[in-house]
């Protein structure tokens, strides 16, 4: 890409990334949440690739990392959901904890660390969604590169 695009990207990409994380971490207080935050984080990563480009090997490595992020997020979500069973020892809820039970204390209204497990759910969704979308984008890019090579051969 041109110099102007690169310079503007270099200045703004951190802000875009921070905005995504901001939406994630205040999702239980205001607009935002894991889905919007995750998509914006993925957009920041895509902007990076579009502006600066990647070598083929780096494309594959980035895709591995994005897939690892996706798997981590999904498994994290599932573990959080299963941790509801641990609610038995921490707080009595009837006689047993259950799947997706929000066992952490609710905390003060309006604080970042409130609403029990909801911020952690948001974080897990952000990890999974940003990794998933970024890996789809990288796969498409890599596919186009490979098709071009095949046509040239």
């Amino acid at each position: 890409m041109r110099l102007i695009v690169k310079t503007v990207t270099r200045v703004t990409i951190g802000l875009v990334f921070m905005f995504g994380l901001f939406l994630t971490f205040q999702g239980h207080l205001n607009l935002g949440g894991g889905i919007a935050g995750g998509v914006i984080v993925a957009l920041a990563l895509i902007l990076d690739v579009l502006a600066f480009g990647r070598a083929q090997r780096e494309l594959i490595e980035s895709r591995q990392k994005a897939l690892a992020s996706m798997v981590t997020g999904a498994v994290f979500f599932l573990l959080l959901a299963c941790s509801g069973y641990a609610g038995y020892g921490l707080k009595m809820c009837g006689n047993y904890g259950f799947f997706l039970y929000n066992f952490l204390p609710k905390g003060a209204e309006g604080k970042i660390l409130s609403a029990g497990l909801i911020p952690f759910y948001n974080l897990a969704i952000t990890l999974a969604l940003s990794g998933a979308l970024f890996s789809v984008f990288l796969s498409l890019t890599y596919f186009v590169v490979q098709v071009k090579e095949e046509v040239e051969e």
């Binding site: 999702g27 205001n30 607009l31 609403a115 909801i118």
Partner: peptide, 8 residues
């Protein structure tokens, strides 16, 4: 739930 945002 303790979450201010009812959507969350």
């Amino acid at each position: 739930t303790g979450a201010q945002s009812v959507v969350s």
